[in-house]
């Protein structure tokens, strides 16, 4: 009863909060004292050279990776080893992967209704209606009965976004969603993401699409060697980066 009330009450605190978070792979210190707060409705874009720990950081937010020190709160709940808590948080956090990770043995529609019917226990008919609505929104309703292997990369990634949205998440995590795509397909995926941002979705995106970052980002986070080096609003971040490493990184990716 108390739980139900808690769940119903809107959480006025931050959507995601990382406090002095550390992570090691064996002896290797991948995340060093990460502090990050994401407000509800905020769009955070995380960038940085490869191996800087940015993917690892967002994968901690839904516990695909475990942090070893510090505290991590998602929508007011702390992530601990408690399995129930982890599953409760994963329900509210959608994730889009670099390699889509659609389930190849199911049709697009089956991919979309799996979470809602099995995790949220929504009746199948209702789940299908919601799924079709999201497929419309990502502009591929005609592919509903195909298998993922029959779609292009861009279409697969849009299905993956729709699949996450079907769970009605409060927070969406994007882990380099366009890095595995052919250039001509990047735009169709970014368009969907921009639309989502305009609707007020809380988003944390690891991406190198600086145009996208400028358009929708509220906060830019630059990471290097497991640390958050700079955190700034986009205009300031792009026009007047303070740290040397940020300047170097920006000059490298914006030079061409």
């Amino acid at each position: 009863m108390a739980n139900a009330q808690e769940a119903a009450a809107p959480n006025l605190g931050p959507a995601v909060e990382l406090r002095h978070m550390h992570k090691w792979y064996g002896e290797f210190h991948v995340l060093k004292d990460i502090n990050l707060t994401v407000r509800h409705g905020e769009r955070v874009v995380v960038c940085g050279p490869s191996g800087s720990g940015k993917s690892t950081m967002i994968r901690c937010i839904n516990r695909l990776e475990e942090h070893q020190r510090g505290h991590l709160f998602v929508d007011g709940l702390e992530l601990t080893n408690d399995l129930k808590q982890i599953e409760a948080i994963r329900k509210e956090v959608g994730m889009v992967f670099q390699h889509f990770n659609l389930f190849p043995h199911m049709t697009v529609l089956e991919n979309l209704i799996l979470g809602p019917t099995w995790v949220r226990k929504i009746p199948r008919k209702e789940a299908i209606e919601t799924a079709m609505m999201y497929l419309e929104r990502v502009k591929i309703p005609e592919q509903a009965h195909k298998f993922p292997g029959q779609l292009s990369g861009g279409q697969q990634q849009r299905v993956a976004i729709a699949r996450s949205l079907c769970m009605k998440p409060k927070i969406m995590l994007f882990d380099e969603p366009t890095s595995a795509l052919d250039p001509e397909m990047i735009k169709e995926v970014l368009d969907v993401m921009i639309e989502l941002a305009e609707e007020g979705m809380t988003m944390v995106c690891v991406t190198h699409e600086m145009g996208f970052a400028r358009t929708v980002g509220d906060t830019m986070v630059f990471m290097d060697e497991g640390e958050i080096v700079e955190m700034e609003a986009p205009e300031e971040f792009f026009s007047n980066p303070k740290n040397e490493r940020t300047q170097l990184f920006l000059s490298q990716i914006l030079s061409h």
Binding site: N62, L64, E87, L102, V119
Partner: peptide
């Protein structure tokens, strides 16, 4: 592939599901 396990986890499916 590991991505399949991760996608299932990220969706909130339990181990047996």
């Amino acid at each position: 592939p590991r991505g399949q396990y991760e996608a299932a986890d990220a969706m909130g499916l339990s181990y047996w599901q």
